[in-house]
Computed example of a mutant assay.
Amino acid sequence: MHFSTYDWHWAQMIILIGGSRIFYNGVYIRTKNLWVSYLCHFLWDTITLVIVIVLHH
């Protein structure tokens, strides 16, 4: 779902999506709970969205 966000730029997708997957997968491996990994992803997206909204006003 994120590929169009990076305009299909492969280097960005590998670095950014791959880097975040390493973190989220590490969270899952450590907790053995998919919901914790999902919550981290949700919080990151929410915080990023709020920052973008605040900076553009």
Rank of each mutant, 00 (worst) to 15 (best):
T31Y: 01
I17Y: 03
M13A: 00
H2K: 13
Y28P: 09
H56P: 05
V36T: 07
M13P: 00
Q12I: 08
W8G: 06
W10F: 10
K32Q: 11
Y6L: 13
V36L: 02
F23S: 14
I51Y: 01
L16F: 04
V52P: 02
R30L: 13
V27Y: 00
I17N: 07
W44Q: 15
V36H: 02
D45S: 05
Y6F: 13
H41A: 08
Y38L: 14
Y24K: 13
I47F: 00
S4Y: 01
V52K: 10
I29R: 14
D45W: 01
R21D: 11
S4N: 10
W35R: 14
D45Y: 00
T48D: 03
T46L: 04
V54G: 00
Y24H: 14
M13R: 01
F3L: 15
F23D: 14
L49C: 03
V52E: 11
V36R: 06
I47H: 00
Y6N: 09
W10T: 15
K32N: 08
H9T: 12
I29S: 12
R30F: 03
I17F: 05
F23N: 14
K32E: 09
L16I: 09
I51N: 04
F23E: 13
L55Q: 09
F42H: 12
H2L: 11
Y24S: 11
I29G: 01
G18S: 04
S37Q: 07
C40Y: 02
H2T: 09
M1Q: 07
F42E: 11
Y6M: 15
I14M: 08
L49Y: 00
D7W: 04
V54I: 07
I53Y: 03
V36E: 08
F23A: 10
L55A: 04
I53Q: 06
S37F: 01
I22K: 12
V36Q: 07
